[in-house]
């Protein structure tokens, strides 16, 4: 995973709450067996609408999505993160993320930055009044900046550290393989096994 320290790009105001993962990428696009190639499916139902924010020239090449509360609810599909990143997004800002989406974002290298809703509203106004405004999201000091706008965001320390260092979770866990061996040794005997298949 590429380390993430700071990112600057066009901010995209998405004035919607409860943007669920079926809106981010509908199920019909989930049939690929690769991690790439999902950009076309991003917000596919809305992209048919000329008024949709990503169809406006100023926002087309945006990379910082500023969305309403409860972003990423619903299905656990990590394809939602892949689709956002394939399109070019590096950061999503919201006042509340669904848990699984937040976890997936951290694994994939997409920064899910949680801001106060009042700050989100202020940022929306700025981005709408001056389309194409660049937003800088700095993971080292956990702030969002755009013109005169400055706001803090929160992210859990472990995810922040992993993103800053670009670390692979599995490699980190495998440092503790002896602990896993010891745990397995003590598991109760009655716990079920899937193999061999029951007759």
């Amino acid at each position: 995973m590429e380390p993430f320290t700071t990112h600057t790009g066009v901010g995209v105001p998405l004035r919607r709450s409860n943007v669920d993962t079926d809106q981010i990428i509908p199920a019909v696009y989930l049939k690929r067996v690769t991690r790439t190639g999902f950009a076309d499916g991003l917000f596919s139902a809305w992209r048919g609408d000329e008024q949709f924010v990503l169809n406006q020239d100023a926002f087309r090449h945006g990379s910082v999505l500023v969305a309403g509360p409860d972003f990423g609810t619903g299905s656990s599909r990590e394809h939602a993160v892949w689709a956002l990143m394939d399109y070019g997004f590096r950061v999503v800002i919201s006042s509340r993320f669904a848990d699984i989406f937040r976890g997936n974002a951290g694994k994939g290298g997409l920064l899910a930055a949680e801001c106060e809703q009042a700050d989100v509203e202020q940022l929306w106004k700025l981005l709408e009044s001056e389309p194409g405004t660049q937003v800088t999201v700095d993971l080292t000091d956990k702030t969002v900046r755009a013109k005169d706008f400055v706001a803090p965001f929160t992210i859990d320390d472990y995810t922040r550290w992993r993103l800053l260092e670009g670390l692979d979770d599995i490699g980190l866990t495998l440092r503790y393989v002896e602990d896993i061996d010891a745990f397995e040794h003590d598991r109760p005997v009655w716990l079920p096994k899937t193999l061999p298949a029951a007759g």
Partner: peptide, 10 residues
Amino acid sequence: FGIGTSEVEH
């Protein structure tokens, strides 16, 4: 609980 694909791999 549900997990994403990176966690499935993990």
